[in-house]
Design a protein around this nucleic acid. Structure first.
Lengths: 122, 122
DNA sequence: GGCGTACTACGATGCCTATCGTACGAGTCG
DNA sequence: CGACTCGTACGATAGGCATCGTAGTACGCC
């Protein structure tokens, strides 16, 4: 009633205090998920799941996004049929200052060093 | 000879260029291994495996140290029957500047925040 | 040589997880 | 309504991994 414009399908997110460092590290230890986070950081905006062209099926993509959400790395919101994904920068920077930027920098350095194409940012 | 004093049993370590960020994150996503790294960083020296009083058997302890070594986080050297462990600060700081310190800081903050005893440093 | 300590190697076990395929629900557009 | 797109849920599968126990190796000491 009050806000019928967007879908009200709610997605469970961990509260800020429930975010654990081990969970973040585990989530980012997967190359696919690390790439997702790099792309999200590059646009500093929200992207739909379908924006990402990952070399896995949609089922697996859903799985990876859920891992990122449940670990507290990203926030997911439905907008119609699309599900928008954004980094939880505010929460992460508050809990672990500098962690996200350092991890992103480390990932970028590795891409440069290895000449890897996993970045996909550019 | 030049250095016959210590055992020559060699342990396989990844070269600096072989160290991967994903491997580091995976290694540190385990609470036990994160605690080991925190203790090593606290003493900024080398510690034997038996120094650590982990709530697992020696077999499991060996396993965790191997994961840390094979991911490039620590260096292991035999000294007689003991096996000394030290952080690969030089390599890590060169490959990923600030990463190790940021991760250690994040871990410390979490211990303070959660009132957790997993630190064991003090 | 004999003994004790420190660590390893190997096999087993149970859980977690990355992946897939298929069937389904939610929303948009004609 | 009907069709299409986006994403989910569920089951299956294969591989990884944290853990253990036991047997064994390397080293130092007496």
């Amino acid at each position: 009633m009050t806000s019928p414009a967007v879908s009200s399908r709610a997605l469970p997110h961990p509260a800020r205090d429930e975010i654990r460092l081990e969970g973040i590290l585990h989530a980012l230890s997967d190359p696919m998920r690390l790439q997702i986070v790099r792309e999200l950081a590059a646009v500093s905006d929200e992207l739909s799941c379908s924006h990402f062209d990952l070399p896995v099926t949609k089922s697996t993509t859903t799985h990876h996004f859920r891992v990122l959400r449940e670990s507290g790395v990203i926030r997911q919101i439905y907008q119609g049929t699309a599900k928008m994904n954004g980094l939880r920068r505010d929460d992460l920077d508050d809990l672990f200052p500098g962690l996200l930027d350092t991890l992103l920098d480390a990932a970028a350095r590795q891409v440069v060093r290895l000449g890897d194409r996993t970045g996909g940012v550019g």
